[in-house]
């Protein structure tokens, strides 16, 4: 249970980084585009986290079972990030208040 939660959080972080690495979303979320090297390292960090999540899954519950869990976590994490991104305006307004 704990390891599942950890794998999921890693995937969530990974997609958040991947999102932040895209210039279009940088504009929307931060109000300005980030420097290219920074974007690239964000992207690398995102993929790195995904890989780390897979490793964690493999070493905690075995690589066969872990890979399936990892696939599932990726899907749900992506869904969460998309949902957050869609409701960006509402969320930002709420945060600014």
């Amino acid at each position: 249970m704990m390891s599942d939660a950890f794998i999921f959080l890693l995937c969530l972080g990974a997609f958040a980084l991947l999102l932040a690495a895209m210039s279009r979303h940088q504009q929307e979320w931060f109000g300005a585009k980030l420097a290219r090297p920074l974007s690239l390292s964000l992207r690398a960090g995102g993929f790195g986290l995904l890989f780390a999540a897979w490793l964690v899954a493999g070493f905690t519950v075995g690589f066969a079972y872990g890979t399936v869990v990892w696939c599932g976590c990726i899907a749900v994490a992506a869904l969460v990030v998309i949902a957050v991104n869609i409701n960006r305006d509402r969320l930002l307004k709420y945060l600014r208040r």
């Binding site: 079972y65 869990v69 599932g72 899907a75």
Partner: peptide, 13 residues
């Protein structure tokens, strides 16, 4: 073979 968490992930899929 899936445990509780993976079963829910299957369900979500």
């Amino acid at each position: 073979y899936a445990g509780a968490v993976l079963r829910w992930l299957y369900f979500i899929g």
